[in-house]
Amino acid sequence: MTEAVDFNVARWLEAQQEAVLDAWMSDIVSRWKKNYLHVVDTEHLHLQSRQLLEEIRKLFVENPNEFWEPTPDSKIVVLIRSLSTQRAKQGFKPADSTFYVLSLKRVLWRRLLQDRIAENKVALATCLAMIENVIDRLTLLIYEVYVETRERLIAQQSLSLLELSTPVVRLWDRVLMVPLIGVMDTQRARQTTERLLEAIAKYEATVAILDVTGVPVLDTSVAGHIMKTIAAAQMLGARVVMTGISPDGAQTLVKLGVDFSVVTTRATLRAGVAESLLLVGKRIVAVKDAP
């Protein structure tokens, strides 16, 4: 064995640790200072990074001659996962988040090349390959976690949007209003129907106004969903007044052959409100005309 192959990356890293950490942190700070330093606590960052560096050193001790394969419950994977989740939530761009470990690679390379070991090409290549392997795995992991976190965020948002967008409003005694907004798919339609039926039962409503002003395209699938909602409401004894079909929408629905004649329709919400108040024996008058 030559002296070069005996060169130990783990020991080298231990000796270099402070210098590497300094160089690494200043590289990170200079890249992140514009956008992220207000969300990142530098002291915490130092602590985390020192921990990570320590874990990487341990990897080299544990796998001195082979390439490391990440296992899901190893300490370094857990560390990177939590760190990457946090960054994704803080609004880091993916490139800036992965830059964290890529910067470490750059620092390690630079120091290795300046080291005495650079004279021995075989030893140098072995070291670089080991570092490269670990950093590549970590980069992939960061990216994966980033996407996972973002996807979960999007799923949460669409769920909360779903919750938000199907309100059933009590307009007056026995009069309910359901403003439909956005895309009506099967899930939305089911939720709207459920809420409307619950509200009809709860308030003993006899009229429900279904306002479709906010539905962008009324095609047969949307119309089908609306018809089913209406049928269910009528089964509970409520009359349905549909409002807000645009002139273009009306033309299109007629051409499509969709028949809304089973429900009372009014062009505007205003007319719909007047109609439904009439159905429960009320009307709106000016204060001076009131008895």
Partner: peptide
């Protein structure tokens, strides 16, 4: 016209659905 825009959008919506 806006009626034609709505028609076209609805037709595309039907077929893609």
């Amino acid at each position: 016209g806006s009626a034609d825009q709505t028609r076209l959008a609805t037709a595309v919506s039907e077929l893609t659905r």
